[in-house]
């Protein structure tokens, strides 16, 4: 199980690298959305491993509310970029 966890962490590094390298703000937003989903899945996986329901609820809430919040952020950024 530890191996699976390490593989998941290494996959988390891919969007971090992408968010650092890419200059386009939309690519960065994509990287953020990807990372937020991946961390939520990671929290769910660990909560199942430890049989801890409190952590699982945190993961579920981040998974649902987090991406809705990035929609809001994308709307604000869209207004800025289209005006220029």
């Amino acid at each position: 199980m530890n191996i699976i966890l390490v593989i998941m962490i290494l996959t988390l590094l891919i969007p971090i690298y992408q968010g650092w390298k890419d200059e386009d703000i939309w690519q960065k937003m994509l990287a953020v959305a990807s990372i937020s989903s991946k961390t939520a899945i990671l929290i769910l996986f660990i909560s199942v491993l430890r049989d801890d329901w409190m952590i699982a609820i945190v993961g579920v809430i981040i998974l649902t509310v987090g991406n809705a919040g990035f929609m809001l952020l994308a709307q604000v950024i869209k207004r800025v970029t289209t005006e220029n």
């Binding site: 971090i16 968010g19 650092w20 703000i25 960065k28 937003m29 990287a31 953020v32 990372i35 937020s36 961390t39 990671l42 929290i43 660990i46 909560s47 801890d52 409190m54 952590i55 609820i57 945190v58 993961g59 809430i61 981040i62 509310v65 987090g66 990035f70 952020l73 950024i77």
Partner: peptide, 27 residues
């Protein structure tokens, strides 16, 4: 936008260290 990445990873760290309430507030 990178602050969003930092926030997501901070949430992950807080959650796996057992502080569910702190993680929720951070997110």
């Amino acid at each position: 936008v990178i602050r969003g990445i930092l926030g997501a990873i901070a949430t992950l760290v807080y959650a796996i260290l057992g502080a569910g309430d702190v993680a929720l507030t951070e997110a």
